[in-house]
Design a protein around this nucleic acid. Structure first.
Lengths: 353, 353
DNA sequence: CAGCTGAACGTTAGCGCTAACGTCGGCATG
DNA sequence: CATGCCGACGTTAGCGCTAACGTTCAGCTG
């Protein structure tokens, strides 16, 4: 049994016959050490199984090459994002720690950032809610990048273009000839949800389609809410021929309700989602949806954060990344109720650009 | 602009008119401080917005009240587990940090544990693979609890009873009268996958049903592998009437394949999954599956870890938690090809024990 | 060859905290 | 009243590291 499992830098230095600082410089790849000595030290450190103590490193005011992510991990959306960030961070020789935010809970949030501040060099906050978190983040003495946080944010942020994405989804349905298009909204505490809703209304207005409040049903991004919303829509005297759901999960909820009602997707009702979660291309029907550029968001946010950590004063940069409409099976051109229309409609369908 | 954003314990002590140690004792709720003084100090610390520096705390050899979890976060299974652990940890006034393991990557793993060791008081490793991680874990000077790590593990572990779960799934199918039962395996690098496979073979043997190698198809827990495996099974001259998939995801893959082949679940083929992921009760058909006791696993693992952290030498405890068969829509009693059999079969079904 | 320069080191003083050991009274005991 | 003891504090010495300054010495210059 060894006296101490992990050697300290001092011990490495002693074995290598140099001073503490020389060893530190060698290991941190800093100038001021001759090449031979550096190699020596690195070899010895390796042999001894030396690993820097990041707590000590941080305490003495240095970088730890750790970034932290704060996120609610309960959706495929966030966990994929986190996975992507991890890969980007590792590629930049950073480690990444995740703080999993309790779902739908509001605790004194400052403590988390205080905690992470003591460990990490920077923090990415994936926090779609406009919550009080922001205030505490402001006071945190550490670089912070937010994801999905709307225009309000005072710091650098990375976000997908939810508004444009919503527009493209709506336009797609309109181009397919749909006129009665419903919207199943998301949780309006989220900027992203509001942007999608706004897109729905705007495109409707611009296409000179009537806005029917009955067609806009409140949801909360959950499968269940999609299911219930669709049931409401199906109960309407003049039910919609297409539904735009604010996310994929609720879109599948809606599809389940439609099927239970004995109708088919897209035969009777076309459905568009949002996010392009992985199973959207696997589940039946494969979902037409708006893809969020997850990988790009991960890359952009980490790179932005690392730039801030490096001291490059990116002055409150806001990065908006484009979304992309992915057309799959869940949407088709409108087949009118009156068969007679069928022929003309196809011909009359608006240009598919 | 303040001189320093965060006050140190020394500053709090000075303001409170006490020594550093008295302040420390008061804040850490340790004896040796008079009640009035303690209250005083706590109030002042609060007013000054004091937060302990965990890096310093850890460096000086104390507890940080942080635990860490190492996991591959890409499945609902693991992320739900992590969520549950977070809740349990918080309830015990611990914070929890997650290290998201790169998927299917093998990096020098020690570094992660070394990193976490410097921050956390203990680590939970959710690592179904029997990988080299173990070796490095062994040498980590920190309490470690593993999840899902088979019998090999030298340290405390918490796991679901995969073998018994597999047995109950198989027995369920046999009780329903099925005789040709296929198995879509999981990734055999996982102990859990191997246990489920073993259960399949054992129950088959005990029920004196013939073991047909064609009915055991290799999968890897992915939806795609389930899909492909089912296609293989459907192509058999004498196709199975029931399928036991090693997890829910691949079960749904199999269901998709069955449907594409124009058959129905459970009408033509019954399907059982494993895990009971949240959507198993929502997707159509609702899946008969074996529920992993996620909440209990989370609770048990965190509690075990905290016990170890507290110094209670739980000598390499192995906790195995029971699984539970959840019967839903995807399985039904066999409708024999020869109608005549129907009556006798029910009667001849093995005892339901 | 004095004087300077700069690279290659070494030394010192913390970062913020806690363990371990003082100190100092008050109070009970013989 | 000396002794012992205990609770309430204070002091000191680190934990492992790095920033900021020393120091040393080879090599160059005029």
């Amino acid at each position: 049994m060894m006296k101490r499992q992990y050697p300290t830098l001092a011990e490495v230095a002693k074995v290598a016959g140099v001073s503490l600082m020389t060893a530190s410089r060698a290991i941190n790849n800093r100038p001021g050490v001759s090449p031979e000595k550096r190699e020596d030290i690195l070899r010895i450190a390796d042999e001894m199984g030396y690993v820097v103590n990041r707590a000590a490193q941080k305490l003495s005011g240095a970088r730890t090459r750790i970034i932290a992510v704060v996120a609610e991990l309960h959706t495929p959306f966030t966990s994929d994002l986190v996975l992507g960030m991890g890969a980007v961070a590792r590629a930049a020789d950073y480690e990444m720690l995740v703080y999993s935010l309790p779902v739908c809970d509001r605790r004194p949030p400052g403590s988390i950032l205080d905690l992470l501040r003591q460990i990490a060099d920077g923090v990415i906050v994936i926090l779609p809610y406009e919550s009080d978190y922001l205030e505490s983040v402001v006071s945190a003495h550490i670089p912070v990048v937010t994801i999905e946080q709307g225009a309000i944010s005072a710091f650098p942020s990375v976000t997908a273009d939810n508004y444009q994405g919503g527009r493209s989804a709506l336009q797609h349905l309109i181009e397919l000839g749909h006129r009665r298009i419903a919207f199943i909204s998301g949780n309006d505490r989220l900027t992203s949800a509001r942007d999608r809703r706004r897109a729905y209304r705007d495109v409707l207005a611009q296409a000179r389609l009537p806005y029917d409040p009955d067609l806009e049903v409140t949801g909360d991004f959950s499968r269940k809410s999609g299911f219930e919303a669709a049931n409401k829509l199906l109960a309407l005297p003049d039910r919609p021929t297409a539904i735009f759901a604010a996310n994929d999960i609720s879109a599948y909820g809606a599809i389940a309700a439609i099927r239970e009602a004995g109708l088919s997707v897209p035969g009777d009702i076309s459905v568009v989602g949002f996010d392009d979660i992985p199973i959207a291309s696997q589940l039946h029907p494969q979902l037409t949806t708006v893809r969020q550029p997850l990988q790009q968001m991960a890359r952009a946010s980490v790179n932005l954060l690392l730039a801030l950590v490096a001291g490059l004063d990116a002055p409150s940069e806001q990065i908006v990344l484009p979304t992309q409409l992915i057309v799959r099976e869940s949407t088709v051109a409108l087949r009118g109720r009156r068969r007679a229309d069928a022929a003309t409609r196809t011909a009359a369908a608006p240009s598919l650009r």
